[in-house]
Simulated scan of single mutants.
Amino acid sequence: MRMPPIPPAELSEEQRPLDDHVRKIMSGLRTPFTSMDDSGALIGPFPVMLRFPDLARPLLDWFTSVTSGSVLPARVREVAILTIGSRYGAAYELYSHGRIALEIGLSSGVVAGLVAGQRPAELTPEETVAHDVAARLYAGAPLPGALYLAAIDAFGELGMAELVFLIAQYSSISMVLNAFDVPLPPDAE
């Protein structure tokens, strides 16, 4: 762990508004995972973000703009997030979003397959498109025309854009998690 959690009592005046903002975001989300330690300090990517509030605020604003008013089904979102997390090997992302995926109805087999970097056969056609878009963009290549059109057909133009921005966002979060060697909480499998 390169940047340990910051207990609430030790937050600076510059860090406290960002900590409050993160807690507000988290309170509005399904969080079937551990996001605080025993002292009440935020864990996951948040200790890093709190140490660099000027860099983190735009990332969090981007997060809320992509997640508010989402047109993508929750399962599609989680398939894309887990696909990206598996490609980067971002352990905390896979832990937290694996739990979210299970809570919203993806089977344990599908979640395990996605976490292992596979394309589970049990994905719906829309989930398959989300997986394929995420995998292709991670590979660093343009989307083939047929895949682009399949995504537009599945999600509409706005949904396709949301999918791409979601993939970019979780690629960024994966990089933060990996660069700062963010550990898993004790309850992670």
Rank of each mutant, 00 (worst) to 15 (best):
F46L: 01
D19M: 00
A80V: 13
R87G: 05
P4T: 14
G69Q: 08
D38N: 02
L59D: 10
P125G: 06
I25L: 05
E157F: 02
R87D: 01
V79T: 12
L11F: 03
S86E: 04
L94V: 06
P186H: 13
H131E: 10
P183Y: 00
A134W: 05
E127W: 14
E14H: 10
L102F: 08
T128R: 15
I100F: 00
V71A: 03
G117D: 14
E126W: 14
M175A: 14
D153C: 00
F46Y: 13
P185D: 11
R119H: 12
L18H: 06
L82P: 04
S171W: 02
E93A: 04
G28N: 08
G113H: 10
L137M: 14
F155P: 04
E103I: 11
A188F: 04
I84Q: 05
E10G: 09
H131A: 11
D61G: 08
L60F: 12
Y88W: 15
P47K: 03
V115W: 04
L72G: 04
T124Y: 02
L94Q: 10
F180Q: 07
G109A: 12
G145H: 12
A179M: 15
D187N: 10
I81L: 01
G69Y: 04
T34Q: 11
L94T: 05
P120D: 08
V182C: 03
E13S: 15
A116W: 00
Y138T: 01
D187T: 07
I43E: 06
L82R: 10
G156T: 05
A161D: 10
M175V: 15
D181R: 02
E13F: 07
S35R: 10
D20I: 03
G44P: 00
V66R: 00
A141H: 08
A91T: 01
G140V: 03
V133H: 05
R77K: 15
A134F: 06
I167A: 08
L166M: 09
L143V: 06
S174G: 00
S12H: 05
F155H: 06
A101R: 06
A56N: 06
S68I: 08
E189M: 11
S172P: 03
L149I: 13
G113R: 03
A121H: 15
A56Y: 13
A80P: 07
A41W: 03
D181V: 05
P5N: 09
V182S: 07
Y170S: 06
R99Q: 08
H97K: 00
I25R: 13
M175W: 06
A130R: 04
I100G: 00
L123C: 13
V110I: 14
M1V: 07
A91I: 00
V164Y: 03
D19I: 02
P4D: 15
P183D: 11
S107M: 10
